[in-house]
Each structure stands twice: as structure tokens, then as C-alpha cells.
């Protein structure tokens, strides 16, 4: 994909753009922002798994003490990560909602400039053009995507070590084999919800950019493409919300989901709903890519 002419074109353009003043200060800021979440994540991971190992090799009588010590260490580090968590949330919202505008102007702008017809008479297939334009859109979002990637380890840590579901608590609680299995199921359910949550922004970006591209092929002006894209996304988001709220309400009514109790069925149900939403968005994005290519082919 990196060898795709459109990707190379956008890479060249992005490289020429001055994104950030050069110099030692910039390097320190970028380096610090990049390194801090990784360091925090590694420290938390080390603390967690260090404690798990200690629990396994030591007397279970000391389990409570070790678990408490672990929670103190982790919560200390987590408070540091809190700042980055907020930053990540901001970046996520920014990238997810700026992405459609960047995608919407990509093809419409080429039409305005009169370069698109020339591109379409080359040997690039319609699908290849759409994929190239999509990758080109992601290139222009690179600062946000990079920040998201850098801050992702913190989310991984949150998913694994969250108090309610961390493996340490799981082991520390001990109990019968049935109880451990029950807790393992719970932990698995939470893990699935966490993973779905981690993948969600990427699925959002995929859906929003492909929606932008689809609308972009329909519009002759980039301004109209941006406006229509946001309109379409608001409607799409509304429909998704109504659909999944209805599913959740139905499952609550029949007793599969529970609001207060933490049953395995309820957690697994929530996990499936979270995964279904992500899968639906990814499938939607793939369908939109194919539909955009087909629209170009039929013009």
C-alpha cells in the first residue's frame, strides 16, 4: 500500500507541510509526550505481573497484603496516567470527527481542480483509487493517529488491570475452582468489552472516512461534500444509537442483561453488544469502500 502512487503523493505533500516548528524544544515536547504513556504503561504492567508471580510462588496467606500493595502502586501510577487518559479522549474525539471532513474533500477537491478525470483514465482501478484516497486521508490525520497510537498502551493497561477485573484480584480472591472459573469468565467478558472499546475509535475513523469518501464521489464541490458528510454521519450515528439502545433494552427486558448484578450472562451480553457495534462499523466501512468504487465505475 505504501507504494501506491496516491499514497506516495500524499506522503510527499505531508512531508513538505510544516507541521511543527523544528528545534530542540519541539523534540523534547514530542519525545516526552510519546515516551511518558509508554513508561507509565510498562510500569503498571510490571507491577501487575510482578505481583501475580509473587502470588503464585508465595503462601496464599500473604495474598491480601500483596494485592493491597499492588493496588497502591498501580493507583499511584494510574493517577499519573489520568492526564494522558484525558488527552487520549480529546484526541480520539478530534480525530474521529475531523477525519470525515478530510475524506470528504479528497475526491470532490480533485473534481473541482479537474484532476480527477485524468486520474480515472490511468490504469488505477476505481477500487485502487478509493483505497489510495482513503490511505491518503489517514496520512493527513497522522498527528492525531500517532497520538492515539502512543496513548493506546495506557488503555491496554486500563483494560487489563482495572480494579474490578484485574487478574491479580482474580487470583487474590481465590476460593473454590468454580469461583475462580466464574471470575475468569467475568474477567474475559470485561476484557472483551475493553478490547472493543480500544478498537472502537479505529472503527469510528474507518467508518467516518469511508462515509466522507462515498459522499465525496457524489458531490462536485468540496464544501457540499463536507456538509453532506456530517449530515449523513449524524443520521448514521443516530440510527446506530437507536439500534443498540433497543437491543440493550430488549435484553434487559428478557433478563439477559442486568443493571446491578454482575452475572456472567450479563457481562458476556454487554461484551457481544460492544463487539457487534465495532464489527458493524468495520463492515459498514468495507461496504462503503466497495460502494464508492462501484459508483465511480458506473459514472
Amino acid at each position: 500500500m505504501l507504494d501506491h502512487p496516491l499514497v506516495r503523493l500524499e506522503l510527499r505533500r505531508a512531508r513538505r507541510k510544516v507541521w511543527w516548528p523544528k528545534g530542540r524544544f519541539s523534540a523534547l515536547v514530542v519525545g516526552g509526550l510519546g515516551a511518558a504513556p509508554i513508561v507509565i504503561a510498562l510500569m503498571t504492567l510490571a507491577a501487575t505481573f510482578g505481583c501475580v508471580v509473587l502470588l503464585i510462588i508465595t503462601d496464599t496467606a500473604q495474598a491480601d497484603q500483596i494485592a493491597s500493595a499492588f493496588l497502591v502502586v498501580v493507583s499511584g501510577i494510574a493517577s499519573l496516567g489520568c492526564l494522558f487518559g484525558a488527552l487520549r479522549a480529546l484526541v480520539e474525539v478530534g480525530v474521529v470527527w475531523i477525519a470525515p471532513a478530510v475524506a470528504a474533500i479528497s475526491i470532490a477537491r480533485e473534481r473541482e481542480l479537474g484532476t480527477f478525470d485524468i486520474l480515472r483514465t490511468t490504469l488505477l482501478s476505481e477500487r485502487s483509487i478509493v483505497l489510495g484516497k482513503w490511505a491518503g486521508t489517514l496520512i493527513w490525520l497522522w498527528p492525531g493517529i500517532l497520538l492515539l497510537l502512543v496513548l493506546t498502551p495506557l488503555q491496554v493497561i486500563w483494560v487489563i488491570t482495572n480494579n474490578a477485573i484485574n487478574p491479580l484480584t482474580l487470583f487474590a480472591l481465590g476460593g473454590s475452582q468454580n469461583e475462580i472459573a466464574h471470575n475468569a469468565w467475568l474477567w474475559g467478558g470485561f476484557l472483551l468489552i475493553g478490547i472493543a472499546g480500544m478498537v472502537k475509535p479505529w472503527a469510528d475513523i474507518a467508518l467516518h472516512t469511508t462515509t466522507g469518501l462515498f459522499v465525496s464521489t457524489l458531490c462536485k464541490s468540496s464544501g457540499a461534500a463536507v456538509a453532506v458528510t456530517y449530515g449523513a454521519l449524524i443520521v448514521m450515528r443516530g440510527l446506530l444509537w437507536i439500534t443498540f439502545s433497543s437491543i440493550r433494552a430488549a435484553l434487559l427486558t428478557i433478563g439477559v442483561l442486568e443493571l446491578t448484578a454482575m452475572s456472567i450472562a450479563s457481562i458476556i451480553g454487554e461484551a457481544w453488544i460492544a463487539c457487534a457495534q465495532v464489527l458493524l462499523e468495520v463492515a459498514g466501512a468495507a461496504i462503503l469502500v466497495l460502494a464508492t468504487a462501484e459508483m465511480l465505475r458506473r459514472e
Partner: peptide
């Protein structure tokens, strides 16, 4: 093909423009 109203990628260098289309072919 050369259309009646054609645009060029103005932010590319002349050789880059040709290289880009050669890659597209």
C-alpha cells in the same frame, strides 16, 4: 487523454508530476 478543462497538481514539482502519472500507468 487530455480533457478540455484539466487541472494539475500545482504543489508537485514538474518531474514529480510526470513520475506520479508514470507510476499510475
Amino acid at each position: 487523454y487530455m480533457p478540455d478543462f484539466f487541472g494539475v497538481y500545482g504543489d508537485m514539482k514538474v518531474w514529480e508530476y510526470l513520475d506520479f502519472f508514470a507510476a499510475c500507468y
